[in-house]
Design a binder for these strands. Structure first.
Length: 364
DNA sequence: AACTTAGCCAACCGCGCGGGC
DNA sequence: AGCCCGCGCGGTTGGCTAAGT
């Protein structure tokens, strides 16, 4: 049995709102408020509209101090940063932009901002191809290419760093326990994990080190603007229950462990912190394969339905895994609560990601 | 001038969540 | 504990307009 409709579809008007309808709705809400019941509101004021439609009209158009169009560069950057951080959570993004609605931002992103981003990547790829005429490993080639490369590199690096971090905190964690791994890993992910584990074995006792990767041509860490710092005290006191799933929707993994991280994510150094970093190299083909891989090859079949978000980010290319990584971090930090601390979110996002991407040519 | 295509944006739709009963 | 219902969210659609042919 399906869900009961929220209103009598046959007796409600659909389509664009007339000025009269707008005036009626606006006048009533300004005088009486919504009354806490959108469904009942249209009947009260004699509008042949669905309550949801009234709510949408009010929130997206009639509400005071709504801004339309004319997004500033600063707003662009905030949107990009937050999208990279948390994905398509438009309401949260909108909360950071006074006067903007989630719908407005969503439309703006889908129709313009995303294309700008993709356009840059496309252009960079064209540059790369034209410079050599063959599939090749990443080679810096102009400002855009650097920026895009950095985006990919730092995203991959985050995945690595995060895995390393989790392993350091918990030797029995997901990354050190193949029994907990998904049935099938993407080759690149397999490589990341294997290398990370190898490197970890070498690095356990060092407070600051950089380890070489397998390949020769792509230094992921070289362009990185972030570092992960572990507070020594916290590590020692860690309850060793922190692991993180590879994908944010992987609930069976998420729920199998305590989703709380001890990562210190502040970009500013904290006195007494240890500094760990790992560098790994990947070929262009490996990265492309990773970015374009299908969810089904990445997860067991039971998990396919969890990958919608993953696929949805595909076109973000290099930033996609960053998003997965980061949103996971956000999710764990928010302790599965729906009430986001927007201010800390923006602080985190701007503190790391915005800081990282903005200087790299993502001022649009 | 007529037609097609692309871009943009308002509005709709369905689902998940949470509160109330 | 389970059901119902309203709210809020993100994805999608449809219509209008501008640009291109």
């Amino acid at each position: 049995m399906g869900r009961a409709p929220c209103c009598d579809k046959a007796n409600v008007k659909k389509g664009p709102w007339s000025p009269e309808e707008d005036a009626t709705l606006k006048a009533y809400i300004e005088k009486h408020g919504t009354g806490g019941n959108w469904i009942a509101l249209p009947q009260k004021i004699g509008l042949k509209r669905c309550g949801k439609s009234c709510r949408l009209r009010w929130l997206n158009y009639l509400r005071p101090n709504i801004k339309h169009g004319g997004f500033t560069e600063e707003e662009d950057n905030i949107i990009c940063s937050l999208y990279i951080s948390i994905g398509s959570r438009w309401s949260i993004i909108a909360a950071q932009l006074p006067g903007r609605t989630d719908n407005d931002i969503k439309n703006y992103w889908n129709t313009r901002l995303k294309k700008k981003l993709l356009g840059r990547r496309k252009q960079a790829q064209m540059n790369r191809i034209s410079s050599t005429g063959q599939d090749q490993k990443y080679v810096a080639n102009g400002a855009d290419e650097n920026a895009l490369q950095n985006l990919s590199n730092s995203a991959l690096e985050r995945l690595q760093l995060h895995m390393q971090l989790q392993s350091l905190q918990n030797p029995f964690s997901f990354y050190n326990n193949p029994a907990l791994w998904p049935n099938k890993l993407n080759p690149l992910q397999e490589k990341i994990i294997q290398q990370t584990l190898q490197n970890l074995n070498k690095s356990q006792n060092n407070t600051s080190l950089m380890l070489p990767g397998l390949g020769q041509n792509l230094e992921l860490l070289e362009h990185s603007a972030i570092s992960v710092r572990l507070q020594g005290q916290e590590l020692e006191n860690s309850d060793s229950s922190n692991i993180i799933a590879l994908n944010p929707g992987n609930t069976h993994l998420d729920s199998a462990v305590a989703p709380k991280s001890n990562v210190i994510q502040q970009p500013d150094s904290i006195s007494g912190c240890h500094h760990h970093s790992i560098s790994t190299t990947f070929t262009q083909a490996e990265i492309d394969n990773f970015l374009n891989s299908k969810a089904s090859s990445f997860l067991s079949s039971d998990d396919n339905n969890q990958m919608a978000e993953f696929d949805g980010l595909k076109e973000m290319d290099g930033s996609r895994d960053s998003l997965i990584w980061w949103s996971n971090e956000m999710d764990t930090n928010s302790a599965s609560s729906n009430s986001w601390d927007s201010s800390s979110l923006l602080q985190q996002s701007e503190g790391l990601l915005y800081q990282e991407y903005a200087p790299l040519g993502y001022n649009m």
